[in-house]
């Protein structure tokens, strides 16, 4: 097995009119791992996602995927290579039923080439395949849920729909932008095994989270961002023990709580 990282982020810098949203952030992502990115609000987590996926242009630095430079490419080309993302503010197609929401990514060139998640798209028509995917993600096939308009779905299902949209592309990397936030404890409890299952299927994940306890459970490695700079990188224990991280999160009760827990 090669040790070359799947995704390399080299010295990525992004400025918005003189303000550094990201300052020389570097990061390696290895195949099959789950990397957590944490940091206080405004520390540049979502900007990093936008930079990796091509939704924002970098000011400096580069992003490599399997050794090839992808920074500077259009967002849809990067997605076509298999780097998909969810949106923090969910963006379903509100005027369509849930399963039709998946027909759209299944129609995308990558899904047609690779057959979508587990190659199912090559077998059946897209409507059936999309319901199959939704069922895997906890939309009960026999109920009305997959046929409901996306605008009528509760947050929990919308977050899953975001994930499903990524999965429909048969991705190599999924970047989850706060998929746990806004969910109830029981909803999160059902999401965690799902994430673990995705990892077992060989999908590499980057998870941006504020829910530290759940994140520390699933993530292999954690990177901490603060004011656009990489504060540290390490295992959950190392991060929790670090003084700088405590300082950055000072006052955040959850950290204290998690630390007591550990």
């Amino acid at each position: 097995m090669s040790t070359a990282p799947l995704l390399q982020i080299n010295q990525v810098t992004k400025t918005f009119g003189g303000v550094f949203a990201l300052n020389e952030v570097s990061l390696d992502l290895h195949e099959g791992e789950i990397l957590g990115i944490i940091g206080p609000n405004g520390s540049g987590k979502t900007t990093l996602v936008n930079c990796i996926t091509g939704f924002l242009e970098l000011t400096a630095g580069e992003v490599l995927f399997r050794g090839k430079v992808i920074s500077g490419k259009a967002a849809h080309k990067i997605a076509d290579m298999g780097i998909t993302r969810t949106f923090q503010i969910m963006r379903p197609y509100y005027s369509l039923p849930a399963y039709k929401n998946l027909v759209i990514p299944l129609f995308a060139p990558r899904a047609r080439r690779t057959g979508g998640w587990r190659g199912g798209g090559k077998l059946g028509d897209r409507n059936t395949v999309s319901i199959d995917i939704l069922e895997e993600l906890g939309f009960e096939r026999e109920s009305f849920v997959p046929y409901k308009m996306a605008s009528n779905l509760p947050t929990g299902y919308l977050k899953r729909l975001e994930l499903a949209r990524c999965l429909a592309l048969n991705p190599e990397i999924i970047i989850c932008d706060e998929v746990f936030s806004g969910l109830s404890m029981s909803e999160i409890a059902s999401m965690v095994p799902l994430i673990e299952r995705l990892q077992m299927e060989g999908i590499t994940l980057i998870m941006i989270e504020h829910r530290l306890r759940e994140l520390f459970r699933v993530a292999n490695r954690i990177m901490v961002l603060n004011f656009g700079e990489k504060l540290m990188e390490g295992t959950a224990e190392e991060v929790m023990a670090d003084e700088k991280v405590k300082e950055a999160y000072f006052g955040s009760e959850e950290v204290e709580e998690v630390m007591e827990h550990a």
Binding site: T53, F55, A74, A75, H76, K77, A79, D80, T84, R85, F87, R91, P92, Y93, Y94, S95, L96, K100, V103, I104, P105, F107, A108, P109, R110, A111, R126, R165, C166, A168, L169
Partner: peptide, 23 residues
Amino acid sequence: DLGLVLRAVKDNDQAVRASGMSI
């Protein structure tokens, strides 16, 4: 399906882009 994608472009172009399709 093609028409669905077109309607999606109107509804929510960012999601279409994130699905690897050129708007």
